[in-house]
């Protein structure tokens, strides 16, 4: 059973990573940015393009792929969301536009790379290392470490840097931000850059573990959103706890109820939270 626990931690941290990559964006723009799902896949495919098609070493390919994902996020913001914001469109307009973006970009990936599975793994498949009676692979260790670094990094960033503080101000009250002289468009652009970069990173980590397909981003993205809501969308620690709760519920639910009910379990938990504690774990009461 140690294995089940470890799986829970692993999946939970991966969901946290994805959830935290959407966090800066959703905090600031207040709608569910579906096209984020395609950025996750894009990160993986950028790294595939650079490392496999161009033959560059992983050390160069991965950072560059993360940068390219960040660029993709910014591009969406500039081309679509910013004009919509200027017009004060309703959230549903944003959601539909972002679904449109998702469809377009996901099909561009299929068109360029094909629908079959692509891999950036090197070396043969190996048995996992023995760790307190459970098995863990090197890439899973890297995922865990990265996720923890990102959580801590983001916490410090939001608390201590000027940009982080500006983001919190814009998230809390856009009007107030304008009064104190914060250029909210610039801050939102940074949020897209950081969020999309993290999404690219998550995509690459997922691809290193379980390979890539053009639609690989949608499901983790949805889980990220669920984690964010049950965690409370204003608190990083809350999101991590939410992701862990979600992951454990899914793992143990799959173990005792049957794996086909994983989706239903995740969304049932979401509903319970929405009904009885809509502000999430650590969210502020509204």
């Amino acid at each position: 059973m140690e294995q089940l626990f470890l799986n829970g931690i692993l999946v939970g941290l991966l969901i946290s990573l994805i959830s935290l990559s959407v966090y800066p964006v959703i905090c600031l723009v207040r709608f569910f940015h579906f096209a984020h799902a395609v950025v996750i896949a894009a990160g993986a495919y950028f790294s595939f393009l650079l490392s496999r098609c161009f033959g560059w070493p992983m050390g160069i390919a991965i950072p560059l792929a993360i940068l390219l994902s960040a660029g993709l996020g910014c591009l969406m913001e500039v081309a679509v969301y910013k004009p919509l914001r200027k017009r004060e469109a309703k959230p549903i307009v944003f959601i539909l536009a972002s679904l449109g973006l998702y469809t377009v970009l996901q099909n561009v990936i299929s068109l360029v790379f094909g629908d079959d599975t692509k891999s950036i793994r090197t070396g043969p498949v190996r048995e996992g290392l023995n760790f307190l009676g459970a098995r863990i692979t090197p890439i899973q260790i890297i995922t865990i470490v990265t996720a923890i670094v990102v959580v801590v990094g983001l916490l410090l960033f939001m608390k201590y840097t000027r940009l982080g503080k500006a983001m919190r101000t814009v998230a809390n009250d856009a009007n107030l931000a304008r009064v104190v002289g914060i250029d909210s468009d610039r801050v939102i652009m940074w949020a897209f850059a950081i969020g999309s970069g993290l999404a690219g990173l998550a995509g690459i980590l997922m691809a290193l573990d379980t390979d890539m397909t053009p639609t690989m981003g949608m499901r983790p993205f949805m889980m990220g959103i669920v984690a964010m809501i049950i965690g409370g969308k204003d608190s990083i620690i809350g999101i991590v706890l939410g992701a862990l709760l979600l992951a454990f519920a899914q793992q143990y639910g799959a173990y005792y109820l049957g794996s086909e009910w994983q989706d239903a379990i995740a969304f049932a938990i979401l509903l319970i939270f929405l009904l009885f504690r809509p502000q999430g774990f650590l969210g502020k009461k509204v």
Binding site: V80, L84, V93, T103
Partner: peptide
């Protein structure tokens, strides 16, 4: 794929 791209693109353009 082109048809899907067209469809998604139309949605974005309509929203804009």
């Amino acid at each position: 794929n082109m048809r899907q791209i067209f469809y998604g693109g139309a949605l974005v353009v309509c929203m804009l």
